[in-house]
Design a protein around this nucleic acid. Structure first.
Lengths: 141, 141
DNA sequence: AATGAATATGAGAACTATTCACAACTGTAA
DNA sequence: TTACAGTTGTGAATAGTTCTCATATTCATT
């Protein structure tokens, strides 16, 4: 809980620093994001935020998520099927495994893969700005 | 040219075998797909197909692309920004580098990365059904 | 605490990419 | 050549997201 509060404060600070106003609606969304351990979409976040502060519209959820993304506080994912899903920028970079049967999202991290990606780009005269790696998987029987 | 014809014939055969009718519209689209060396979207393919056979609607382009995808003849990509983009299933599997400045798409292939992906999934009790790896890059100066 | 100006808001319209519904048409096997 | 199941174009419908705009709110300054 103090964890979530810290997170919220961090995000609030980020907003203020960027000269972006900290409104009731945004506070609600920040709290909801800080509490989330999954990868909810905008509608889901809207629902959760409204439970805290009823005067949050979906438009504001989208607008604020875009702002938070620009500030680097939130990541937007475009997994297959359905709309964008969000998570706070916590700890290190990671990629995702998606269980094609359950829809569950598992995070993983591989330095080796990252290095290989850089090497491949390098070889072709490019440098990686960002990447997307998603493994659509099925549980082994 | 005989290459494209072969490709078209191959695709036509695949359709016929699957009990799917080979119509004027589909022939046009298959030709356009076989000729494409880039990764066009549905609207672009519609434009190119209409140049060959004016009676092709966008709906049919989408419908046929879905059919071709099911038959494994075409791959659908969902790169960042904009809609789906397509390419014929040529030779081996590959992933993509996207030039963030020019929008250019470069294909690459890395067995090592594939193996690492499998290993990671394996370790977590999963097996990879399919994956998505996109490197958003900038040309080195 | 009050002020004011810039910024944010909710509601719903608009937009983009894609799929659907349906009546008319057409490939294909016999 | 026929018959019928699959396919078509059109336009409406859908999903996800962004935009418009009149009103409301934040917050630095007083």
């Amino acid at each position: 809980m103090s964890n979530e509060n810290d997170m919220t404060e961090k995000m609030t600070a980020a907003l203020r620093k960027a000269g972006i106003r900290v409104t009731r609606q945004r506070i609600a969304l920040l709290g909801v994001l800080a509490d989330a351990t999954d990868h909810p979409d905008a509608v889901e976040l809207h629902g959760r935020a409204r439970a805290v502060e009823p005067s949050v519209s979906l438009a504001t959820v989208y607008r604020t998520l875009s702002v938070l993304e620009e500030q680097g506080v939130v990541h937007r994912h475009a997994f297959e099927g359905g709309g964008a899903r969000f998570e706070t920028t916590h700890e290190e970079h990671h990629d995702h495994i998606l269980d094609v049967d359950t829809g569950e999202v598992i995070e993983f991290q591989s330095d080796k893969i990252e290095q290989l990606q850089d090497a491949i780009a390098q070889e072709l005269g490019y440098e990686v700005v960002h990447h997307r790696l998603e493994l659509y998987c099925r549980k082994k029987t």
